[in-house]
Nucleic acid binder design. Sequence first.
DNA 1: AAATAAAACGAACGCTCGCTCCATTTATTG
DNA 2: CAATAAATGGAGCGAGCGTTCGTTTTATTT
Lengths: 266, 266
Amino acid sequence: MTSAIDLSQDKLDSKTAFASGPVQLNSFASFLESFPLQGEQLYRTVFDRHAEMIQTQKARFAVANLEKILTATFEVSAVSGFDRMSLRDLSRQTGMSMGAIYSCISKKEDIALMVADIVRLSSELTQQHAMRASSIWESFEQSIRYHLYASTLLQPWYFFLYFETRSLSQMQQEESKQMEWDAIDSFERLILAGVDAGEFHTNDPRMVANTIVVLLEDWYLKPWKTKSLEINDEGRYELQLNEVESKINNYNQSIIELVRKLLAKG
Amino acid sequence: MTSAIDLSQDKLDSKTAFASGPVQLNSFASFLESFPLQGEQLYRTVFDRHAEMIQTQKARFAVANLEKILTATFEVSAVSGFDRMSLRDLSRQTGMSMGAIYSCISKKEDIALMVADIVRLSSELTQQHAMRASSIWESFEQSIRYHLYASTLLQPWYFFLYFETRSLSQMQQEESKQMEWDAIDSFERLILAGVDAGEFHTNDPRMVANTIVVLLEDWYLKPWKTKSLEINDEGRYELQLNEVESKINNYNQSIIELVRKLLAKG
DNA sequence: AAATAAAACGAACGCTCGCTCCATTTATTG
DNA sequence: CAATAAATGGAGCGAGCGTTCGTTTTATTT
């Protein structure tokens, strides 16, 4: 299903994994066909980037189990928090034994580390993409769209990192904060470029940049605001892809309109 | 110091406690002189509203200890989260024995309950106040100002509730969500009234309302964005009141400007 | 000053946690 | 088929948890 660029190799080098073609932003559907961090590939990436802490050798097994573990983690800890989730809960929820779980991780904290790593990777992809646009305004639109698409697809991951940062080491916590700074900086730079080019006008570029970032966060932190974004039992969006597509478009359009007003001249 | 409307009674009825005079919004300084949920009065309110779960009888003792407990809770759990904070941590931080702590609470969860209750109370005060303004625009300004003042004074409380909701019961979690809905609804109603009156124009009143609420949340969730808002050892703002005053004014002004643009006609 | 009540103390209890281990069974691979 | 890897499932470890309670200290009243 979906993209399925399955390279079918064990221990794939993580750097080459993202040399895949450019991500398409015409629609969420085309994004799904080109974005690498999803489905089997997503968990394979987790496996590749954390091989040293994983005892299971064959990617086939590890990938399947990592999917179970992470999915269950999101389900349980969205309600009660990561700290309150015991590995016995996790064992029950995944249907795996403690032993099986501990052959995919070396300690509980590893789960949080994996999530943090993937979100950071996804954010890097987002940042990289933004540099490709031809005009400033297009760059704006693409960047916002990419943010929305990626954080919709990886919503539980983004959500988890935001609320469970404090389960990570201080250094990791700082890095998460830095991700927000980077996002704000990046939008601010765009705005300043637009002001210099005479396309925009604003007295407070940082405030506008901050507003955008905060609205983008709101999208994945409070999915209940735009309801019915629940995923089905298999964690797929396909069944209601049209619906998701239009929700994203609406929210995207709202942000764009808002930014347009905030940066209007005169 | 500060307001000090000390009624010096035990078991004061909680409802009469907030019949105090109207809250002043001319400046943060005048807000501090009129807002009831601060200093001794704040902890007395906690005591009054949770007397049934508190063993300590004399308000004098309970109030002093509640202050220690809550202050320490904010300090510890801001770093490591409420779940990771053990009552032994709390005992160390407060200098109180386990027994002393347990004569102010009946179980750990009570601490989170107390915080949730105060934040809800503060939000209610905010909502009530907004109804007093004479013009729509004034109502806007007052409401935003009140939000900023209250959430600055009670920053650790608001912050704690946001990040530790999942330590509460499902019902309490729903109530917290409802608080956000109410805030958005309230701003949306103001906007719609302004549109009807021909003062504002917008295609998406809810988006504007949501943006305001999210920016107000950002203020107390990410104090590091506007730095140097740290309170001193005694938890007071007085030493740098001028600085706080101008930070709030700046942020308030930024929001107002933003809203003005978003609701501009033509 | 003595008597009474309230508050503070902190060792101890029962329990759950993260984590390990291992004999056994099941699946995969050469 | 033999050899290797994965998964099972539960017993068990020590640590640390929230909570209790008999005792001691402090405060208040008589």
